[in-house]
């Protein structure tokens, strides 16, 4: 069964067909939720809520691509979670790194323990840097740079214009660059920033 057939079946109340779609997209949805929320448990709750909302709203889905439609529900649910929790101001990156209790599950690549630890540290640094951004910048950077979606898809998912995507993305990237530059000693060697001779020219 291809995706459109699964969607049509699910719209007629075929729950197993919908669950096929869930299995296809659950990792993507969870990744987006985790990167926006920064908490594995809340990300799992938000993902589950998103699929429940998607099932309920499926009768309003009139063709098109399922992936951006689903991701719109996921990002909106994450926004709701962020607002509902009224999160405390995020701690500094140093404080977050000291915690070291983030333990998300990565795709098993059959790597050794050293590589695993390196990937886990890299993930922590990236995640904690993303959490320094506001919710709108987070969503754009997660969709474009981490999930690799196009500007058009991102604009469609977030319901904003292309120009807004560009401006939010550039601000988010610049902010992340500043944060990561301050902590680049924590980055794996291949990800360290190029040596800057004219730093004063850049940061005036």
């Amino acid at each position: 069964m291809d995706e459109s057939q699964l969607i049509a079946a699910a719209q007629n109340g075929d729950l197993p067909a919908f669950n096929q779609l869930v299995l296809r997209y659950q990792n993507l949805a969870y990744n987006v939720a985790y990167r926006i929320l920064g908490d594995p448990d809340r990300a799992a709750d938000a993902t589950q809520d998103s699929f429940i909302k998607a099932y309920k709203a499926l009768r309003n889905f009139h063709g098109g691509t399922f992936k951006p439609w689903l991701l719109r529900i996921v990002t909106n649910t994450c926004y709701d979670y962020l607002r509902a929790s009224k999160r405390k101001p995020t701690n500094s990156l140093d404080d977050e790194l000291k915690k070291g209790d983030y333990n998300p599950r990565f795709h098993d690549k059959g790597e050794g323990p050293e590589k695993y630890v390196e990937r886990r540290e890299l993930n922590n640094i990236i995640q904690q840097s993303i959490e320094q951004l506001n919710e709108h910048q987070r969503a754009v950077i997660v969709l474009v740079d981490i999930q690799g979606l196009s500007y058009e898809e991102t604009a469609d998912i977030l319901g904003i214009s292309l120009g807004t995507v560009k401006s939010r993305l550039s601000r988010a990237r610049a902010r992340l660059r500043d944060i990561l530059q301050e902590h680049q000693e924590l980055l794996p060697a291949q990800y360290r920033f190029p040596h800057r001779e004219n730093a004063t020219d850049i940061r005036q």
Binding site: Y30, F106, I146, R177
Partner: peptide
């Protein structure tokens, strides 16, 4: 370099299934 770092972010596995 920032963009490359973000694009290298590890993909996560969902901790459980979300079938309804």
């Amino acid at each position: 370099a920032t963009v490359a770092l973000l694009r290298s972010a590890p993909s996560l596995v969902a901790p459980r299934t979300f079938v309804l």
